[in-house]
Structures are given as structure tokens and as C-alpha cells.
């Protein structure tokens, strides 16, 4: 599983990312994606930098970040775990899986476990609708996730955290 990163990022690297992409027409989403891929989230401190480099207002940049569910203004845990809440997954037990996940992790959506390993988020469809319930962990998608399977996946998330020290 890919680890999300957020320590040790440098504003100079953020500027370099912006320089590389800002020539594209309508470049703001590609720029924000690249910065989030680099840092793991979009810290408030990058907003004025993006705005200045791209000749936008801070309000415009903030407005775009806050509009899209994928863009995050806060640090996440080492793994982002998304549980599909959409109808196809509901029909095969996603509501129960959501309850189970919140109860066993001890957190609600948009929260991070106290050990810092997992941030739980809702997602509305991963396009894996014939083999639900579906869960995405970072960039990997899992199908037919039973409660037991979910627990196994979460154990893996905790293990990688321990390995990483």
C-alpha cells in the first residue's frame, strides 16, 4: 500500500510544482492535485503562494479547495480509508460495514485514529458496483469487503505504520 506523505515538505518544491504546471489552460486543479500528491494534503500556507504564482485571489484558490471533496485542508493519517456509501454498495451491506468500521476504529468519518494510522472518509462510488461493498485504501480498491476482511485490511494498515516506525 502506498503511504501518504506529509512531513518534511518544502515550499520551494511547491513553487516548482506550480511553475511546471501553471502554463496549462485551467491549471488550478492539476496544480492542487500535484501539491496534494506531494504533501498529502493542502495546508493553508500554500493558498497565498498558489494565488500569487497563478495570478488568482486567495479567495478563488480557497474556494476551489473547499468545493471538491478530494482536496483536504488537514493532515491525514498514514492511510486514507474510503468506504463506499452509494446505492450499489448499500444493497449488499455497506451501511453495516460503515457502522462496523466506525465502531472498531473508534472514529467517525473525516477523523483519524489516535495512533495516526487511518483516516476514515466516505466515498460515493468507486465503480466497483457488481462486487461491493467496496473500500479504497490510498490508491488500492478492494471488493466484497466483509467485516472480517475489513478488519484484516485495517491490521495491515497498522502493521505498515509500525514498520515505518
Amino acid at each position: 500500500m502506498k503511504m501518504t506523505k506529509h512531513s518534511d515538505w518544502r515550499m520551494d518544491d511547491v513553487r516548482a510544482i506550480i511553475q511546471e504546471l501553471k502554463h496549462k489552460p485551467g491549471a488550478l486543479l492539476p496544480v492542487l492535485h500535484a501539491i496534494q500528491d506531494y504533501i498529502g494534503y493542502l495546508p493553508d500556507s500554500i493558498v497565498p503562494v498558489v494565488a500569487k504564482e497563478m495570478l488568482l485571489t486567495r479567495a478563488e484558490v480557497h474556494g476551489v479547495i473547499s468545493f471538491y471533496h478530494h482536496f483536504r485542508s488537514h493532515k491525514t493519517g498514514r492511510h486514507v480509508v474510503e468506504i463506499c456509501r452509494a446505492e450499489a454498495c448499500q444493497s449488499v451491506g455497506a451501511r453495516a460495514l460503515e457502522k462496523h468500521a466506525k465502531a472498531t476504529l473508534g472514529i467517525d468519518f473525516e477523523q483519524t485514529t489516535s495512533c495516526g494510522s487511518v483516516t476514515l472518509e466516505p466515498v460515493y462510488c468507486l465503480g466497483n458496483c457488481a462486487t461491493g461493498p467496496s473500500v479504497r485504501i490510498d490508491d488500492s480498491i478492494y471488493g466484497r469487503v466483509s467485516e472480517d476482511r475489513f478488519d484484516e485490511l485495517m491490521a495491515d494498515c497498522r502493521d505498515t505504520m509500525q514498520e515505518a516506525g
Binding site: G26, L29, P30, L32, H33, F67, Y68, H69, H70, F71, V123, Y124
Partner: peptide, 8 residues
């Protein structure tokens, strides 16, 4: 290819 950002 341009990526969206999770808005239905």
C-alpha cells in the same frame, strides 16, 4: 486527461 476531485 484531467482529473476531477470527487464532486458528483
Amino acid at each position: 486527461v484531467r482529473l476531477g476531485a470527487g464532486a458528483y
